[in-house]
């Protein structure tokens, strides 16, 4: 059985302007020790998916439907207190911006000790300090003893992200969710952090959900890739088949698009003609159809149904047609 199984997840934001269906019926699963990459343009619902799993979607957002089965238990049925026991201990998360992810008024040591006090194996203060030092060493922070008493602002961005990773793995979680952990960092630092993430994933054999804009990063790390567009999954498959043979026109566009030169590297976006849809009144049928070069009449009328083989899932009428299920068309 998969470690995490998300079924038909629906998370909506009830804004003044209308209901934003940020995640609209997404299903996927992650096995133990597996790395799932999630890619998609900005606003496609990647972060909201992650936050839904953590059950940390904030007002005016709400998960209104679906199931999130983690290790056999539907997280959506847990009380707040029960859910809290999962956070940090079974499922951990690393956020995009390390500059703002640590409390500026607390020392790094405080952050770590606070979390480690939930580890029943660490009885004395000395145990905890030793463990904190061990963790900081594991993420490649030199002079950890000294670093413990320092404040976040005394750390560089890359160092802070290392601290965030140390915090995330501190309680040996089964699943680690990383929401664009390198986007806010310099290119050289990005590479170092990726090295660290890979090393740690292998060492602890954790399941990882890795969210990114950067297809290059995914290619070298993920086992499987899920592509999202406008709150929906459009394609999923193992990393090789997605890169070798992208089937969905959106995935193809993502892969062939080049980063715009004038873009800040921290928000590297891929230039696909047209712009992301209005999420309050998304296009009917296939949400990608206004931008799709292959769009057919049916694409504006009906939501695509799943097409594909065992380890491949595509939501596209063109692919469906090419499979020849419907005779004569």
């Amino acid at each position: 059985m998969a470690l995490l199984e998300v079924r038909n997840l629906q998370t909506y934001f009830f804004t003044y302007a209308g209901v934003v269906k940020a995640v609209d019926g997404v299903s996927f699963s992650v096995d133990r020790g597996e790395v799932l990459g999630i890619v998609g343009e900005s606003g496609s619902g990647k972060s909201v998916t992650a936050m839904s799993i953590m059950r940390l979607v904030q007002q005016p957002g709400k998960t209104v439907g679906g199931e999130i089965i983690f290790d056999g238990i539907n997280l959506l049925n847990l009380s707040d207190r029960e859910m809290n026991a999962y956070r940090g201990k079974r499922i951990a998360m690393v956020f995009q911006d390390p500059m703002t992810s640590l409390n500026p008024t607390l020392t790094v040591g405080y952050h770590m000790m606070e979390l480690l006090s939930r580890d029943p194996n660490l009885k004395t203060k000395k145990d905890k300090i030793d463990r904190a030092i061990e963790l900081l060493k594991a993420v490649g922070i030199s002079e950890p003893e000294k670093r413990l008493s320092q404040y976040p602002y005394q750390f560089s961005g890359g160092m802070r992200q290392r601290v965030m990773i140390a915090l995330a793995i501190a309680l040996n979680p089964d699943l680690l969710i990383m929401d664009e952990p390198t986007t806010a960092l310099d290119v050289t630092v990005q590479a170092q952090i990726m090295e660290l993430v890979k090393e740690i994933q292998e060492k602890y054999h954790m399941a990882v959900i890795f969210i990114t804009h950067d297809l290059g990063v995914i290619a070298g790390f993920a086992d499987r890739v899920m592509v999202m567009y406008a709150g929906k999954k459009v394609e999923e498959g193992d990393v090789y088949s997605i890169f070798e043979n992208p089937l969905h026109p959106y995935t193809q566009a993502l892969l062939s698009a080049v980063p715009k030169l004038d873009m800040d590297r921290s928000q590297r976006l891929y230039a696909i003609p047209g712009s992301p849809p209005n999420m309050i009144a998304p296009p009917p049928g296939c949400r990608f159809h206004p931008r799709c070069p292959y769009a057919m009449r049916i694409c504006a009328k009906k939501i695509p149904i799943a097409a594909g083989t065992d380890n491949r899932e595509v939501y596209c009428w063109k692919v469906f047609k090419e499979m020849g299920v419907v005779e004569g068309v």
């Binding site: 209005n278 296009p283 049928g285 159809h289 769009a295 009449r297 009428w317 047609k321 068309v329």
Partner: peptide, 14 residues
């Protein structure tokens, strides 16, 4: 069959 014809620009919705 008409469903499977390319969609004219003006019929695209949204």
């Amino acid at each position: 069959k008409s469903l499977w014809e390319p969609i004219p620009e003006e019929e695209k919705m949204g």
